[in-house]
Amino acid sequence: MSRWTSLVVVGDSFAEGVGDPLPDGTFRGWSDLVASQLAARETGLRYANLAVRGRRLDRIVAEQLPVATGMRPDLVCFSAGGNDALRPGFDAADLMARFDRAVGTLAEAGAQVVLFRFPDQSVRLPLPGLLRPRIVAMNEAVSALAGRHGAYVVDLFADPAFGDPALWCQDRLHLGPAGHRRVADHILATLGVAPAPEPARAGTAARRRRRDDARWARSYLGPWLRRRLTGGSSGDTVGAKRPQLTAVEVA
């Protein structure tokens, strides 16, 4: 097993931990869980989380990558592109070419990079016929480019557990606490420091109901569309939750 002395997390709300709130109003998420578990094995591990909700790939690359590479971390978890895939005019080939260059930048800085094949969110969102091909294209590109950069790939798309609404928030976009825990389990297994999570039980996915869809649209889709129309983002007033490499307290 490799010994890592520093972990940096780069990305958007998925990496920030949105959906897994702590009592003080901040978010924990899979990144904090992974850092805690690694720190229990690697004395002196330092951890930073630069991820900010709502960020698209180009802004992640511009704002977070220079900071991350400047920290010279051993291990970087990098997730981006989900917010891009929700926009009109999405071009998977163009996006993933830029994604590839970003991963190359991290690898050239000496980091071991962890990438993700995302779960299929199209089963819970409008226009699944439009969204699913985008998710599949991004995941296939991640699998292809990972080998060029010697990156780990955490395959969440292949895990049927993520079809269970219990792993997601009511907004259908963000993982809930149980979802973040399962992502952490997958990462630790991919890194070779823990066994693979238990297989999902059959028949966990719940059928969507029209009244649920209507309630969701009023509560979550409407506000999201208003932000898009006004050029706003959920992360406009948010900074990185852990901008410095600091030691991890082991519970």
Rank of each mutant, 00 (worst) to 15 (best):
W4E: 13
T5N: 13
S6V: 03
L7I: 01
V8W: 08
V9E: 01
D12I: 03
F14H: 12
E16R: 10
E16Y: 00
E16Q: 14
G17L: 08
G19T: 09
P21M: 05
R28Q: 10
R28F: 04
G29T: 04
S31R: 01
S31V: 00
D32T: 09
V34W: 05
A35G: 08
S36P: 07
Q37P: 03
L38D: 04
A39T: 05
A39R: 01
A40N: 08
A40R: 12
R41A: 13
E42C: 14
E42H: 15
G44Q: 02
L50V: 00
V52S: 00
R55N: 10
I60N: 07
V61F: 07
A62I: 02
E63M: 02
E63K: 01
L65Q: 09
P66K: 09
V67C: 00
A68W: 03
P73D: 07
C77I: 15
F78W: 00
A80E: 12
D84Y: 11
A92N: 05
A93V: 09
V103I: 12
G104D: 11
A109T: 07
G110A: 03
L125H: 10
L125S: 09
P126C: 06
L130Q: 11
R132I: 02
V136Y: 02
A141W: 04
V142P: 14
S143E: 14
A146Q: 10
R148N: 15
H149C: 01
G150N: 05
Y152V: 15
V154P: 08
F157A: 15
Q170T: 15
D171W: 06
L173K: 10
A178T: 11
A178H: 13
G179D: 00
V183E: 06
L188R: 09
L191D: 01
A196Q: 11
P197E: 06
P197A: 04
P197M: 04
E198N: 08
G203Y: 06
A205L: 02
R210P: 09
A214Q: 11
R215F: 03
W216Q: 09
A217S: 12
G222E: 11
W224D: 14
R226G: 10
T230S: 13
T230V: 12
T237Q: 14
Q244G: 01
V248I: 03
E249C: 10
